[in-house]
């Protein structure tokens, strides 16, 4: 870790002090703050490292100003629309994730990458997907960035367990990774009751016809899982219909129409009937 320069310290000290309630509600000078951030940005990599060095775990000291400065910097480099500047900022932060900071500090850095990061930090974030404390922010930053996220999530899944596995499964659905359909189909039979609905939703959102059979089977479960798997079936049918796969969509709707005979599930039957009507209308129109 580099030492923090006195010039940086001076700049950071110019940022507002929290008021008597601990808030930024008094004496907030927009122009002054923006000038400070612009000057910190000019300090480049060293300034970023200096700010990171000032961060502490929550409750272990007062880092309100450097914490604020780092976030303002993340927003500032996006606002400038200077690709080189933004990329340099993101790379500088990403480098620190391999260093010896606390998990709480690293989590904060990842959240700033969620704001300003791009493809350049994707491999670094991917390495954190097996970390119980960092997998959630890392996965969220990855899917916010989008490009390249699916490969990282897919590659991390086989070795992931517990919370990391659940997080990865859900986010494979967010990025709609078709290459994970087989793995996610198997996750429908997972021992973990949170993982099964997450896998069902992920498969539905991906919208691949290979998921139809497994999702219909999952929708025969009971309670919350039945509700969630039924939703997944309806979502999958909508996705398939949008992709022109009418036969598969009809299969889902027909199954739900025929199996939801209990008055308590009449609304699902109606949803399926509506889906069938839309499908038939599209077929008549040659769509």
């Amino acid at each position: 870790m580099a030492k923090t320069s006195s010039a940086l310290n001076e700049l950071v000290s110019e940022l507002p002090d929290p008021d008597e309630r601990g808030m930024y509600c008094t004496d907030i000078n927009k122009t002054k703050i923006e000038k400070v951030i612009a000057r910190i940005n000019k300090g480049g990599h060293d300034s970023i490292i200096g700010l990171v060095n000032m961060l502490v775990e929550p409750g272990k000291g007062d880092d309100a100003k450097p914490r604020y400065a780092l976030h303002c910097l993340a927003v500032y480099v996006c606002k400038r629309k200077n690709r080189k500047n933004r990329k340099a900022f993101a790379n500088s932060l990403a480098m620190q994730l391999a260093d010896d900071y606390s998990k709480a500090v690293k989590s904060y850095l990842i959240r700033q990458l969620q704001v300003a990061g791009g493809r350049e930090v994707v491999p670094t974030l991917g390495k954190l997907l097996h970390d119980e404390e960092l997998c959630e922010p890392a996965a969220q930053a990855l899917v916010a960035i989008g490009s390249g996220a699916a490969t990282q999530l897919r590659n991390a899944l086989p070795e992931a367990g517990g919370k990391c596995r659940l997080t990865i499964i859900q986010n494979l659905g967010v990025v709609r990774d078709r290459n994970s359909v087989g793995t996610l189909n198997r996750a429908l039979g997972d021992d973990d009751r949170e993982t099964r609905p997450a896998a069902a939703w992920a498969l539905a959102n991906i919208g691949d016809a290979r998921s139809v059979k497994a999702l219909l089977k999952a929708a025969d479960s009971q309670g919350w899982e039945r509700i969630q798997a039924t939703k997944a079936c309806l979502l999958l049918a909508e996705r398939l219909l949008s992709a022109g796969k009418k036969k598969e969509a009809v299969g889902i709707y027909t199954h739900l129409r025929d199996t939801r005979s209990d008055p308590d599930e009449h609304y699902v039957r109606e949803a399926a009937e509506k889906g069938l009507a839309i499908t038939n209308r599209k077929a008549r129109m040659g769509g």
Partner: peptide, 12 residues
């Protein structure tokens, strides 16, 4: 028209 926002706390 606003000063730079805090990452977690809503402000002015």
């Amino acid at each position: 028209y606003a000063p730079p926002a805090h990452p977690e706390a809503c402000g002015m």
